[in-house]
Structure formats: structure tokens, C-alpha cells
Design a binder for these strands. Structure first.
Lengths: 222, 222
DNA sequence: ACGCGCTGTATTGTATACAATTAGAGAAAG
DNA sequence: CTTTCTCTAATTGTATACAATACAGCGCGT
């Protein structure tokens, strides 16, 4: 059986990512404990983890709230991701093995299959996309880099952006993965870095555009 | 009165940085609790923080040990620092204020005073150096970046490297700070980024050389 | 009406007891 | 002699009670 603090972490994280809790909502330890069916002790551990993930913020007096992400925040996070994942891709290119290439290719094929349906399978896309990036990161073989990136990769807002992708955006993502594969296969670190950085920047603009669209809709509805 | 968990954090961190505990030493919660004069609860909070700082590592079964840093690890950490602090400097250049310039200048003057004595005041140098970098980071105004960098800035090994600096190394550091000030004053982001990245890389080589020297000494003594 | 301080209540911090898990020593079998 | 199994002791995980702290609302004085 999994530890209670882990379950609490997953539960609370899920509530934030799913939108069940919205930005700014207060997170009382006692309330969460009741909701997760555990005592406050594991909740506190979970909150500390979520804090380093930047999914929650704590006031000076240690009260916890669901973090709110302004467009500036998100832009900032993406720029950091572009830099760090670019670095990861470069390191991966220097350490790549034939097995890795095979696994990445399989991954990207699964993505291709998921997005060429008439009704794109977004869940599979997200899973395989995550796997693709995780493989690259693993190959980069830097514990520190892995640590830093986990805080940035699982971003709440981004998580849902792919649902607004149009067919062309999916194709772009897939093609960029293929390009990255080519760079890795040739062990060309700088190329891999450039592609990855561009890949992340494009994802940001996809998010940014979708967000803008959503805001106009809200405005129109109001 | 400061919180017990904070005191515990500082105490344990101090024990690691000062070398009272060496790499690989086991860190039992109960033993630490007794040593810090608090219960296990705040110790657990402190250990979590130290873990994200990468000063301790935890086994699969959650036992804690003082982290050991290979030269590769350190090199890796420095490269990340160079990238991230470079980015911070660039952002700072875009957001700089006259007050900041003044504070940085004061900081660097204090450094100059500390290192031009016949017997350099290393403690002051370290403090002011930290303050200098903290000011730049603060001006960069990215909560995320700050989070990521704290894990890298307070490196245990690095902390003691300055004690092995020769007079010229201190002067280099001071001069590079002055260069950075010039870049900030002109709001030249790319220049600031280059200087900062170079500054960090130089620090790595200073560490690397000193480390090499220490290893030869050890060898000779054995 | 406005600001200031006080008090009650809600929330977090800490200690402690107990449960669950794991490492490691030692015995038994091959 | 090596291997594996078991059992014990040490260590971490969780729950709960209590202490300290912060926030909000109210009353008071200006």
C-alpha cells in the first residue's frame, strides 16, 4: 500500500489540476486532512512538496493557497523550461544509445497514431509526450537537472492547453519530435538544443493563443 | 522566537557545510532531534527542505544521508548555475533601478575592502558575495527562477572553496562584479548574461583547481 | 466616521505515542 | 564457505493532543 502522504499529494494535486480548486482558494490543513481521509501529518508533507512544485503558495504566516499563474508567470516558466530542456537535449545527444532512439521512435509513432484519428486522442498524446520528454531527460543523466525540471514540467495550466490544440499544432509537435530524433541520432548536441528550445517556445505560444481565446470568450459571455 | 524547524534546518545545514558531518553519514531523525533539542516533527520538515537543496539524499526507504558530490556532479551544478544566473542577470538588466546600482556598488566596495587587507576577510567576502548575487536575483523578479537557484547556490563544497582563493582570484571576482555593474547600468541584458555566465564558470575552475590540489595533498599524506 | 487595540476563534507548530516498515545480524541448509 | 531465511532491533510513517500564533470582529476612544 502506498504511503498516506503520497496519496494526499496526488489527491490535492489532482484537485488543483482538475480545477476542482481554483487559484487563490485557501488550503487549510484540517479541511484537507478530512477530505483525504488522513491526519494532518501527511497533509503537511504533501503541502511542502506541492509548494516546491509551485502549485501552492504560502503566506508569511504559513497559510497555504492555490497558486495563481499570471501570463507573465507562465511565460517565465516556459522560458526556463526552454533553456533547461534545451540543455537536457544537448546532454542527451552526447549520451544517446540506439535503444533510446528506438524507444523515442516508438513513442513518437504512438503520438502520430493518437493525433491522426478524426477525433484526436488527447490523453494518449499527453501521456506519450510526457514519456518522450522524460526519456530525453533521463538520458541527459543529470540528477540536478531532473530535479529542477520536475518543478516546471508539471504545470497546471499547460496540462490542459493541449485540449485546445488544432490539428496543425499536433502535427507541429510531432514533426519537432522527429527533428529532435534526427539530431540525437547524429549526436548533434547544439542542434538538439535548438530544436528543443524552439519546441518549448512554440508550446508557449500555443498556450498563449488559447488563453487569449479563452479570455475573449469569457469577456464575450460576461 | 524563530521556529524550531527553521533552527533545526540551520543547525543541520551548518553541520554539513562545516564538515562536522561528512558525505555518506547517516542522518537518523531521532539522533538529529536530540542533537537539535527538538522533537522529530520539525526535524522531518528540515530534512525535506535539505533534500530539495540536494544537501542530503534519501534512499528508497526514506533513510537520509549526507549527499556526496562527485566532480561531475559539481561541474553539472555549475553549468546549470551559469545558465540560470546568466538568465537572471539578463532579466535584472531589463529591470534595473538606480537604487539597485547603488546597493550593488556598496556591496562590491565592501568586497574590495575585505579582500585588499593583507589577511583577506573571507567570511565578509562570502557574505557580501552572496548578497551581491541575491540582489541580482531579486531584481530578476522571477519567483520560479529564485526557487530553482536556491537549490544550486548554496553548494556545500563551493562554500569552502573561497578559503583557497589566491589574491588574484579575489581580484578577478571583484572585477567581474564591476563589469556586471557596468552592463546593468547600461541595461545591456546580453552583456550582463555573458559576464555572469563567465563569472560562474571561472568560479568552477577555481573550485576545480583547489579540489585537485586538495586531492594531491591527501594522496601525499597517505 | 475613523483608527486603534483587545479578545475570541481559527489555524499552524510541536511533542509524543504507537504502528508499519526495513536493515542487518545470525542461524540453518546447501 | 556461501546462500537464504527469519527474527530482532532500529527507523520511519501516522495519529492525536496540546501549545503558540495569527486573523477577524468588536468595542472603545478620539
Amino acid at each position: 500500500m502506498t504511503k498516506a502522504s503520497d496519496r494526499a499529494y496526488e489527491t490535492i494535486r489532482g484537485m488543483i489540476l482538475s480545477g476542482e480548486l481554483s487559484a487563490g482558494d485557501p488550503l487549510g490543513e484540517e479541511a484537507l486532512a478530512e477530505r483525504c481521509g488522513v491526519s494532518r501529518t501527511p497533509i503537511r508533507e504533501a503541502l511542502r512538496q506541492l509548494e516546491t512544485d509551485l502549485l501552492i503558495r504560502r503566506t508569511d504566516s504559513q497559510r497555504s493557497f492555490v497558486a495563481d499563474w499570471s501570463l507573465d508567470d507562465v511565460s517565465d516558466a516556459f522560458e526556463l523550461r526552454a533553456m533547461l530542456e534545451g540543455y537536457a537535449a544537448r546532454r542527451a545527444a552526447e549520451r544517446v544509445t540506439p535503444e533510446l532512439i528506438d524507444r523515442l521512435r516508438a513513442c513518437n509513432s504512438a503520438i502520430a497514431a493518437a493525433i491522426s484519428k478524426p477525433q484526436p486522442d488527447v490523453a494518449t498524446f499527453l501521456d506519450r509526450n510526457r514519456e518522450f520528454h522524460a526519456l530525453v531527460l533521463e538520458t541527459a543523466a543529470s540528477r540536478r537537472l531532473t530535479n529542477l525540471l520536475t518543478a516546471l514540467i508539471e504545470q497546471p495550466v499547460v496540462w490542459r492547453t493541449a485540449h485546445h490544440y488544432d490539428p496543425e499544432a499536433f502535427q507541429c509537435s510531432h514533426r519537432e519530435h522527429a527533428d529532435l530524433l534526427a539530431a540525437l541520432e547524429r549526436r548533434d548536441g547544439p542542434w538538439a538544443e535548438s530544436i528543443m528550445a524552439g519546441h518549448i517556445h512554440r508550446a508557449f505560444h500555443a498556450y498563449s493563443d488559447a488563453h487569449q481565446g479563452m479570455r475573449s470568450l469569457e469577456k464575450g459571455a460576461a
